[in-house]
Amino acid sequence: MKNRKLTIIGWSLIAVMLIATYFPIAIIVIFSFSENKVVGDWKNFSFSAALYHTVFTSDKIMPALLNTFIVALSAAAAATVIGTFAAIGIYYCRRRMKSVLTTLNQITLVNADIVTGVSLMFFFLLLLGRLNGIPAMIIGHTVITLPYVILMVMPRLSQLNPNLYEAGLDLGAGPARTLFTVILPQLVPAMLGGFIMAFTLSMDDYVIAKFIKGGSETVSTLIYNSAKVGLKPEFRALSTLLFALVLAVLAVINIKSARRSKKSGGGLLPFIR
């Protein structure tokens, strides 16, 4: 009897919070199909895909999307490669070195983004001849996403059977060959998780990009710049598209990891920062 009451309270809490969480997103999605200037103007709501047309023909949004993908893909790839090797290296370090390096890894994690962004800006200004634009953003995003890749790969390393490496050496493979044929294949799921996380973090970032972007815009910096003067209606369509993309990626990961983790448990939660 009492338990039932609690269940009802629980469900109503969940319902209220769900509505609060998705209401803003829902109105954006609904009004992305109408050319209304103002969101919530139901009287003048007329279904049209004009805003989507504007997005795809915009000479601002399309280059920014391209830049975003170039930066996010390059930075995520670089962070995944460097981060995976770093995780292996750190994992096999002696205890003191290991704790020094894991502390080092936390500097960018804990540091405010604006401080990281500003310090990189001054760094490029002083040492690299005012480097800015896409190369600077790739470097910046590699730096901020590296710690996340390391944090995702490290736990996987501790689950590996330590004898496998020895077995590879005993069977005559050199350390490098053992690494590439025995250790790395087992890290692929964690690397993939790290890559996706790095990719989303890079796409999300405007704080660091803002200070080093030079003349190139990404979607985030474009939104940030336009936000001050008031975002145009076509950003509703852009938001909806990006939201659909996130949804699709999450669904794919979820299905894959659900299939894989039937034994080990887990699901998608490890993929979320």
């Binding site: 803003p24 979607v219 938001s239 990006l242």
Partner: peptide, 20 residues
Amino acid sequence: MIFIMPMWINSLLRMFAVKN
């Protein structure tokens, strides 16, 4: 999962949604 999902959306777009 459903509650955490908005975290993956660009934070500026979330702010845009709140503004609207």
